[in-house]
C-alpha cells in the first residue's frame, strides 16, 4: 500500500519515513552494535587476566556501565519521542537514539529543508523534504564515523603532527563552531513567527532553570533531563498559544 503512496509533494511523510527498507537499516545498525559488543566482550574477557583483572571485575564493569547508563538512556529516549512526529521511528531510533544526537540531526535536517526552500514540520514539509533531510543528517553523521576510522590508527601510532596541534586550536575552534552554529540556528527560528519566538524562549528558560536547579539544588539529574523537559514544556506552550 505504501509503495503506491510515494509522492514527492505529499505532506504525509509516512510512506517514505516508515519504509520497510528504513526499518531493515535500523535493525541492521542495532545488529552491528550487538555484534561489536559480543566480539569486544570476548576479547576483553580473554585479555583480562593479562591486565590484572578478574572475570568478575570485567562483568562487574559491564553491569556498572549499564547501571550508569540508565538515566542518560531514558533522558535520550524522552528527547527521541519528541522527535517521532517529525522523523518517524526508524530514523529517530538510528539517528537521534544511536549514532547521532538530537542537536546535530535536527540542525542538519533543518539546514537541508532550508536548501529546498522548505521548513521542517510545516506545510512545506513534504516526502521529498523529509528524504533530503534524512539523507543530509545521515551523510553528515558519516563524516564523524569516517574521521574516527581515519584518525584513530593515526593517533594510535602517536602521530606527531596531530599531537602537537596547538592546544589553543583544540579549544577555540570547537567552542566557536558549536556556539556559532546553535546561536545562528536559534536566531533563525525567531524570523519564522511569534509562536516560534515564544517556543524558543520557553525552551531556553526551562533549560536554564534545569541547569540552575542542578547546580544550586544539587540535583544533577535535572541537567541530564533538561533537554527533554525543555522540549516538552516548550511544545506545550506552543500548543496553548496556537489553541486560542
Amino acid at each position: 500500500m505504501h509503495r503506491f503512496a510515494v509522492d514527492p509533494g505529499s505532506t504525509d511523510i509516512s510512506p517514505v519515513s516508515f519504509h520497510p527498507v528504513l526499518w531493515i537499516c535500523a535493525a541492521a545498525v542495532f545488529a552491528v552494535i550487538v555484534l561489536q559488543s559480543v566480539i569486544y566482550l570476548r576479547a576483553i574477557r580473554k585479555a583480562a587476566s593479562s591486565a590484572n583483572l578478574t572475570d568478575e571485575q570485567v562483568m562487574g564493569s559491564v553491569r556498572r556501565g549499564g547501571i550508569a547508563a540508565i538515566g542518560p538512556s531514558l533522558a535520550v529516549a524522552l528527547v527521541a519521542i519528541s522527535l517521532l512526529p517529525l522523523f518517524s521511528t526508524p530514523a529517530v531510533l538510528t539517528r537521534i537514539g544511536l549514532v547521532g544526537s538530537a542537536a546535530f540531526d535536527v540542525a542538519a535536517a533543518g539546514l537541508a529543508a532550508q536548501s529546498q526552500g522548505a521548513m521542517l514540520g510545516g506545510p512545506t514539509y513534504t516526502q521529498k523534504v523529509f528524504a533530503i533531510g534524512f539523507a543530509a543528517m545521515t551523510l553528515g553523521g558519516l563524516v564523524w564515523m569516517l574521521t574516527a576510522l581515519i584518525l584513530t590508527p593515526i593517533l594510535a601510532k602517536g602521530d606527531k603532527t596531530l599531537r602537537t596541534v596547538n592546544p589553543a586550536i583544540m579549544t577555540v575552534v570547537p567552542t566557536a563552531a558549536i556556539l556559532a552554529a546553535f546561536i545562528t540556528l536559534a536566531l533563525t527560528e525567531t524570523t519564522k513567527s511569534g509562536v516560534h519566538v515564544l517556543t524558543l524562549l520557553v525552551s531556553a528558560a526551562v533549560m536554564g532553570l534545569c541547569i540552575a536547579g542542578a547546580k544550586f539544588l544539587k540535583k544533577p539529574w535535572l541537567r541530564e533531563w533538561g533537554l527533554g523537559i525543555a522540549i516538552f514544556v516548550a511544545l506545550a506552550a506552543a500548543f496553548l498559544a496556537t489553541a486560542k
Partner: peptide, 29 residues
C-alpha cells in the same frame, strides 16, 4: 502538527543554553 511545526525552536532554545553553559566561555559566546 504543533509538535512538528515548533520542534526546531523547542530543541534549539534548550541546546543553545546548554552549549553556552557547558562551554563556559563568555568571550566566545
Amino acid at each position: 502538527a504543533v509538535a512538528r511545526l515548533y520542534i526546531l525552536s523547542a530543541v534549539f532554545g534548550a541546546v543553545t543554553i546548554q552549549a553556552i553553559v557547558s562551554m563556559k566561555n563568555a568571550r566566545t559566546t
